[in-house]
Design a binder for these strands. Structure first.
Lengths: 340, 340
DNA sequence: TTGAAAGCGGTACCAT
DNA sequence: ATGGTACCGCTTTCAA
């Protein structure tokens, strides 16, 4: 068997027309005899329908693309699992692609949707540049953004109040007696970076504290390594600029912060309390376990999938926004659940 | 613009034939005037070629599928990145799919390759069942397995001596003075589970130690949570069955082991040393940092991608096997690099 | 119920 | 260099 069997081969083998063969397999009108004849031939030849040809004819791959910046972030893994779960059963396959932090790659990916890469796109971009926004609008298939679009563009969005997440963290630290709260942020040109900074300032203001930029560091990425580097800078400036807490903009940064503190002999949570955001398994399992603000990653994934599914069914629906509420999970890194 | 522009539309707009339009865009023989005319029309209409149609005609999606069991394991993320890196530039898109631990899903995925899901498959299966082995053999597109196939089936494989990895861990523990070494394994019906058990026994034998099944636990998954549960059982049996080290079958299990030990008041590494396997970022950043045996995940991903690329170029190549060597990275969890 | 034939959107071979 | 056309594999009218 040097070549894959096509429907033609099956029809020939069964001694019927391709049309009949197609109907017999798909479930059109066909006699029982026809059905058994064709099925037998198909089995004999090991026939498998060609998805490409079917897509071309039917217009639509039964495939959805999920695009994330950093697949190494468990945050996205949680979304991925939830999305996959929604689609399984709907007979839709999920195509995960990491856009690798480069705008070029992201744009290519988004544009590829117009050439049939999938029937829909779920994307969670760190940076929403004008070019990306335009590309998303020009996409012919439905798009759902997990994150924010900055403007009222006509696209479905699942969002979370990222600033509020940080406010919750700050409030928790204040409530547990911390007085000088440092901030370990990610890049300011990302949406999370920008909004979390706002949340930090709002949180301080709510507590009647004045911000001090000397205890604010901006990591160049939302990763452990970047968190480590920036935390080292923070510590270097001590004790002249001291602090008794660090609010990290996500769990990976928090891990970087804690490991660096400990390696420098700074106790966590005794000397410095640390909080993260995302409530990943990483945070829950770290030592000490990390207080983190859940921004409902699994829930957002689930909602994104449903929005997409609903739009498939009803393409003329007005664009919708679905918001998830953040909630803080207190753990050992802020000293609240010590001994747990 | 209610409908996507097709090549027909472009040709009409430019006042030329579809054949000429195709050539002008693809790069066949065409006059400069033709090229500019067609390109202008294409831009005007926002024409984007349909990948599905092209695939059908050309035979081959420029897409490769990478299938892993647990996308939440950073081990696979390392492979993914390496693979992606190799394919980028070759103009091949990588389609990542998590097979979610269920054999059904895995089989469906593998079989879908025969219906044009991609031009090739890289798969790293935890369990190689007879059904999976058969499905892999029946696949019409090239397959590369990262792991092991148990038999000399005619498929490219990138492997690592998983048993040796555990032996290295045991030897390291022995060399650093540990005398009763517990083993936290993953499911025995997986390839890693089975071979790592062999490595554990071999390692003990090499050190002149006799195995004691009361310090061996088999977690029901290679995850943190499973590791936690099994470690709790291990600890429960102390001090009657004591141990001063735990060899975990991967980093996630190691994290589960350490966090459970610490939560139970068992010091790491003072009372119990712990080692992992995979050398993920998780291991490097944990507190204490975890001694882990690298099994070259990135390297294996890279090699798998290259094997596939080479087979694309030379389909008649004899099946090859490429082996990576494990190496131990000593960290704080075994007390060697304390204070680092 | 069945078969013949027209596409789906491209590409490539064939003449011109 | 250009246009006409067959064809990739499948689904779906349309007649018979």
């Amino acid at each position: 068997m040097s070549h894959r069997a096509t429907l033609h081969d099956v029809a020939a083998q069964a001694g019927v027309s391709v049309a009949s063969a197609s109907r017999a397999l798909i479930g059109g009108s066909a006699s029982l005899e026809m059905i058994s004849k064709v099925r037998r031939a198909a089995k004999q030849l090991g026939y498998v329908p060609d998805a490409t040809a079917r897509s071309l004819r039917m217009g639509g791959t039964r495939q959805v693309v999920f695009a994330v910046d950093d697949i190494g972030n468990l945050n996205y893994v949680a979304m991925l699992r939830a999305i996959e779960h929604e689609f399984t059963g709907a007979g839709i396959r999920l195509n995960v692609t990491a856009t690798g932090r480069s705008e070029r790659q992201t744009l290519d990916l988004v544009r590829s949707m117009n050439s049939g890469a999938g029937d829909g796109l779920i994307i969670s971009p760190l940076r929403v540049t004008p070019a990306l926004r335009r590309a998303l609008l020009e996409t012919v298939v439905p798009v759902v953004v997990i994150g924010s679009l900055h403007r009222d563009v006509a696209i479905d969005v699942v969002s979370v109040d990222s600033a509020l997440a940080v406010e919750l963290a700050v409030a928790h630290l204040v409530a547990t007696g911390r007085r000088r709260i440092a901030f370990l942020n990610g890049p300011l040109d990302t949406h999370p970076g920008a909004s979390r900074r706002r949340g930090y300032l709002a949180g301080l203001a709510a507590a009647g504290m004045t911000p001090d930029e000397s205890v604010v560091e901006v990591a160049d990425d939302f990763t452990i390594e970047a968190g480590r580097r920036s935390t080292a800078l923070l510590i270097e400036r001590r004790p002249s600029n001291t602090f008794d807490a660090i609010v990290a903009a996500n769990d990976l940064l928090a891990v970087g912060a804690i490991s660096t503190c400990l390696a420098s002999g700074v106790g966590v949570p005794d000397e410095v309390a640390v909080t993260g955001i995302d409530d990943t398994e990483f945070a829950a399992s770290y030592n000490p376990s990390i207080t983190s603000v859940s921004i409902g990653s699994a829930e957002r994934g689930k909602r994104a999938a449903r929005l997409l599914l609903e739009r498939f069914a009803e393409p003329t629906l007005a664009p919708r926004t679905s918001a998830v509420h953040p909630s803080l999970i207190a753990r050992a890194s802020t000293g609240v659940t010590r001994g747990a």
